[in-house]
Computed example of a mutant assay.
Amino acid sequence: MTSARLTPATAALLTLPPLLWAGNAVVGRMVADLVPPVTLNFLRWVLAFAILLPLGGWVLRPGSGLMRHWRRFALLGLLGVGLYNALQYLALHTSTALNVTLVGSSMPLWMMGLGRLFFGASVTRAQLLGALLSMVGVAVVLSRGDWAQLARLRLVPGDVYMLLATIGWAWYSWLLAQRAEPDRLRADWAGFLLAQVVFGLGWSALMTAGEWALTDARIQWGWPLAAALLFVAVGPAVLAYRCWGLGVQRAGPTVAGFFGNLTPLFAAVMSTLFLGEAPRLYHALAFALIVAGILVSARR
């Protein structure tokens, strides 16, 4: 796919999703005491399903191709809908929104590693250098700027959860690149997402049942939680997917990838405004290293 000229309208389309994804991390942190993390993910996608149903409900009809490829969509639903968001919300219980988004920015490292190991993708020297810079950036985040912490292997649990979520999302992204479903299903963004959500809700329901059975889970209903659920369902779960898809079609995936790494910057600003988690010097260093790694690895 060739990239087109980056117009202001396309730039706006590609800027909105990182803003919403950063807001997702901040809101998840804000309601951490109101709803269990896995339950939050389940409720979020229940609302997203209700929103997507009128737009892509045709995918649930016989002959759409969904059931013929149910194994593929079951795996996509597990990785993209079930595990990733549940692990992210779980990470926000013990880590900050800024750290979670910075660790998530290590995505190019895991994308390259999984591609090389399991999908036959080649790795260049520039990509290796970029991966090294990204790895150092993640290490800065995990150590909180204190290298002695790495020697003691004292990691915040939330950082580990987010690393697992990021690896899962990288696997999910590679699977998305494998075109195995009918063109009609792939072309309809609402139907394609709904096909994943259908199976993802099943996985999420099982994990939510386990959360309620094994923990002292409880929900504090009220307008703050209702507003948060509405935001994470409409914004990060539906609107961001739509804008990102349009932006990638217009500018190409390479250019779009750079916009994705605006998420930590937006999260830093939002955390300062809403959570009182002011960015520190090591956050800036980590962000610079991760972005430098992406830029180096993207060079031809």
Rank of each mutant, 00 (worst) to 15 (best):
R218S: 00
L132K: 01
L229Y: 10
W189H: 13
A9G: 13
W221N: 04
L150T: 11
S173Y: 07
Y161W: 14
F118L: 09
A9F: 15
A97Y: 01
L90S: 15
I290H: 05
N261E: 07
L281K: 08
Q88H: 11
V296G: 01
A86C: 10
A74F: 07
G168W: 01
G57A: 05
T94A: 00
G252P: 02
S122W: 08
W45P: 03
S122V: 07
L43H: 03
A180Q: 15
G137D: 03
P62A: 03
A48R: 03
Y84K: 05
T15H: 07
G191Q: 10
N99W: 02
T39W: 08
I294Q: 00
L194Y: 10
G113K: 13
S95N: 01
R250L: 15
R299L: 00
I219D: 13
L128T: 09
S204F: 11
G77P: 08
L114N: 10
A86Y: 02
L163T: 07
G168P: 05
G210P: 00
S122N: 02
G57P: 04
H283V: 12
T254M: 13
L201C: 14
S271Q: 02
P36C: 06
D188M: 11
W45A: 01
S173T: 13
L34A: 10
T96V: 05
R186P: 04
G158V: 05
G113N: 04
I51K: 04
R184N: 15
Y282H: 08
T94L: 00
S297I: 12
Y172L: 13
V26S: 05
F231Q: 02
A12D: 08
V27T: 15
G276V: 00
A74V: 00
A228R: 01
L273Q: 06
G247D: 13
L53G: 01
F259C: 00
A217Y: 01
G158N: 11
T272N: 08
G80K: 07
Q88M: 14
G247E: 05
R152Y: 09
L14K: 14
P224Q: 03
R242P: 02
L164H: 10
G257D: 02
A292G: 09
A32Q: 12
L55Y: 10
G222C: 07
F199M: 12
H69Y: 12
I219Y: 14
A233G: 01
A233N: 06
L90K: 08
G80H: 09
C243I: 11
L13Y: 02
V232N: 05
E211S: 12
